[in-house]
Design a protein around this nucleic acid. Structure first.
Length: 336
DNA sequence: TATGTTTCAAATGAATCCACGTCAGCGGGATTA
DNA sequence: ATCCCGCTGACGTGGATTCATTTGAAACATAAA
């Protein structure tokens, strides 16, 4: 079973949907910052709220895990608006001019999912530029973040003062609603396997992250040869975790995957390791599969990516007998 | 036929983005003197 | 005061790509023998 799209009528999020949807209809420049933990349904909420937006409005959804520079975002946005394709070689300023001209013709909503990856990699150049477009441009920006509740802590003051976002926090679903959503999802998929209600409860009681829950159930349905019971669920716990991780990391490099594998092998249970040992094991893993390892500098950045994805739990040390380093362990299913 | 002019594609050059590498300064608690 | 150890910002490099300019040769035009 493939993990299906989330339901379109999103349960009990009428207020949130309304906030997002009004941006689609009101002209002018708007800025909305949505924060919620991973797997609380932010992306689904935005998609559902904008599903019925008028044809005159162009919506452009981008995940900053891949669009992690100003250039890439502008490029993708321009391509969305024109059907042209753009490669490297242009000046960023050139793209900015092209876009400014284009955006005066088309009301547009730009959704920046996983905004932190853009900010960490490229600073706030993009967020500084966007509010400074020609005033008659009708561009609404929706940021999605699973990390910081407010934008002011991650962009500089000058940029923030021109953004002045409206904030929309998204809370996790309580267990019973999460169970309803999962049940709906199963009904939407073509499978003969039946899933017992207490199997779903077993999932929602453990995983607060809905996406994790979906992958977990998918794993159970795939392996089960009869009805899915709580025992089935427990048996495929590891499988559910690896499915979830695989999906999250699909937007990243093979080295991210090797790195997480290295951390896995070093840490069993609550055991923690520091950056140095992780890097050694990573290098070793690379050698076993005849891949050239990247330098520690790059791996340091990649560890930050895994941390932002909440796939690892990191404690930062500034000194002491370990020196300045990170203590790392994989995040457990309950914590995703 | 020789010479000059036009035209247009190919070659060249300078600039850009970007992933990644190298380098060096730094942080600050624990340990040692 | 020193050690620990790697974090982190600045900068360099090379590949892929862009646009603009130059080059080269073919095509054409004109004039002279």
């Amino acid at each position: 079973m493939a993990v299906p799209d989330r339901p379109s009528d999103y349960i009990n999020r009428a207020y949130e949907q309304d906030v997002v949807a009004t941006m689609a209809t009101a002209p002018g420049q708007h800025h909305l910052y949505i924060h919620g933990l991973r797997g609380t349904g932010k992306t689904a909420l935005v998609r559902a709220a904008l599903a019925d937006s008028p044809d005159t409005v162009t919506t452009c959804y981008l995940s900053c895990t891949t669009c992690n520079t100003q250039y890439k975002v502008l490029k993708r946005l321009y391509e969305r608006l024109t059907d042209d394709t753009i490669n490297h070689g242009y000046h960023t300023a050139q793209l900015q001019d092209l876009l400014d001209h284009r955006l005066t013709q088309t009301p547009t909503i730009l959704i920046l999912d996983e905004l932190n990856f853009l900010l960490e990699n490229d600073g706030n150049d993009l967020l500084y530029f966007l509010p400074r477009l020609t005033p008659d441009v009708a561009l609404s920006i929706i940021d999605l973040s699973a990390n910081q509740p407010t934008l002011s802590t991650v962009v500089d003051e000058r940029t923030y003062s021109s953004l002045r976002p409206r904030y929309l926090p998204v809370d996790p679903y309580p267990e019973d609603r999460a169970a309803t959503i999962l049940t709906q999802q199963i009904q939407n998929t073509a499978t003969d396997i039946s899933v017992q209600p207490d199997a779903i409860s077993a999932v929602t009681a453990t995983a607060t992250n809905i996406t994790v829950g979906l992958h977990w159930l998918a794993a159970a349905i795939q392996t089960a040869d009869g009805p899915v019971t709580p025992a089935t669920i427990e048996a495929v716990r590891g499988d559910g975790v690896s499915r979830y991780r695989k999906t999250l990391l699909s937007a990243f490099t093979a080295h991210h995957i090797i790195l997480l594998e290295a951390i896995d092998r070093l840490t069993t249970g609550e055991h923690r390791v520091t950056t140095g040992t992780v890097y050694d094991r990573y290098e070793h893993l690379c050698r076993t599969i005849s891949t050239a390892p990247l330098t520690a500098r790059r791996i340091g950045d990649f560890l930050r990516h895994l941390e932002l994805l909440h796939l690892i739990d990191v404690t930062h040390h500034t000194g002491g007998e370990t020196g300045k380093t990170r203590e790392i362990r994989p995040t457990t299913l309950e914590e995703f």
